[in-house]
Write a protein that binds this DNA or RNA. Structure first.
Lengths: 239, 239
DNA sequence: CAGTGGTCTAGACCACCAT
DNA sequence: TGGTGGTCTAGACCACTGA
């Protein structure tokens, strides 16, 4: 474990546990550098991640203040898998695999997915149940090139855990787009309300550490169950 | 201008102009440090911002690759004001101020806004028209403590420009929440479709560089005009 | 093996804040 | 004025990539 990551996690843990109270100041960078016996630059790296993740705000000439955050404002934005969210929030949730098959990218699929025509993909549809209600429909395309084997078991349990821990692939970043769509026939796999006419569509292209796209997902959410949190900084460290 | 910011902007500009092509590599950190006559650490700071903003992906042992991005995927997530978006996208858009008055935070308002009971705020409602259609309803609360004067002029033109350039306040970060709501009577200030039953609600709490909240906004968007892009990294530089 | 990015150091100077 | 965070340097060593 890198030393600045260790420091990040210790401070994060202390904030979450309330040992560093909201609106109070962290020890100064010089104090932390003595305390952890590392250089000031290493402390600054740890603090930079705390800033990026919305734990602290640095104030020049004063110090680093702990930000008051709402409960459970964890990375609902960002790139976090469904199972990670589920565990973080303690949902009572299950996944049902509707279909799983190999397919070849057609010109129409290429357009929306970002994959090239002719590439071989796993094509799968899953339903997420929360408290017994079918509320999310997940439609995935995964490149066979990167994920040669894929079972219902992988899809029911954590797909990202399988990809990262078993296949040792490094998931790096994603582009997401949220829109409100009209219902399609396929959406009736979900437990919709009688008068529902809209559904939330979250489309993602997910990339590995070598900048190659390996996944395209469309996640369709029942409107009244949908919630998206974002922590945004103005001019992310630049301008 | 800080030297790493200058480098950031020069490289960003070169990427946007196509002088650095997607899927090609930037010069190495050592080359850039010679080229710009700065230390490698300074180059690395500039590159870190390019990574955070989704322009490049660093690959250890190989270099920094330029990411292929869709057109116009600018910070629609993040903390960008309506007028900045409008300018970036070239919308034909106007703003109409429905109301502007001072108010005192009540217990109910405190709950949703995050402000304390008894604080004095500007309370304003605006309508955003795009191509002549009234599609967004903006409801704002702004602390009088930080913004003593506020005119219709400020609200029609860029509020953030007024706050940053004229009042010299540093806007730092925001917490946002996106949900799909049922229509309220107030929403009929917009040009809704006959069968619309939902609206997209984006609620934001906006904070200054000293970590003090100065604004609460609810932005209500006609569903078929709503679009939200996000660029997300897994484990933002930490784990 | 040489070249790349990743981590870490020790020190310098600056801008800002409080006293 | 002393302490804070912000910028920048020069150098070191490591882990990884590709030839």
């Amino acid at each position: 474990m890198k030393s600045y990551q260790r420091i990040y996690h210790e401070i994060e843990e202390a904030i979450l546990a309330g040992r560093y109270q909201p609106e109070s100041f962290l020890p100064s960078e010089n104090q932390l550098s003595t305390q952890y016996d590392v250089s000031r630059d290493t402390v600054r790296k740890a603090l930079a991640s705390l800033v990026a993740n919305g734990y602290i705000q640095k104030i020049r000439g004063k110090g680093s203040i702990v930000i008051q955050r709402e409960q459970l404002r964890f990375p609902l934005s960002g790139l976090t898998s469904y199972h990670e969210l589920q565990r973080a929030y303690g949902y009572d949730s299950t996944t049902e695999v509707v279909s799983l098959e190999k397919a070849i990218i057609t010109p129409e699929l290429a357009e929306s997915s970002g994959f090239s025509v002719g590439e071989e993909v796993w094509k799968t549809v899953r339903i997420r149940k929360i408290d017994g209600q079918k509320v999310i429909l997940d439609k995935d395309l995964l490149l066979v090139k990167y994920i040669p084997e894929l079972t219902e078991e992988n899809l029911t349990h954590s797909l990202y855990h399988y990809i990262e821990s078993d296949l040792k692939l490094a998931i790096a970043y994603a582009e997401k787009e949220i829109t409100i769509d009209n219902l399609t026939p396929e959406d009736h796999l979900l437990d919709l309300h009688e008068n529902d006419i809209n559904i939330v569509s979250v489309k993602s292209r997910v990339y590995l550490a070598d900048a190659a796209q390996f996944q395209y997902t469309e996640s369709r959410h029942q409107v009244d169950k949908f919630r998206f949190f974002d922590f945004a900084r103005r001019n992310p460290s630049v301008y």
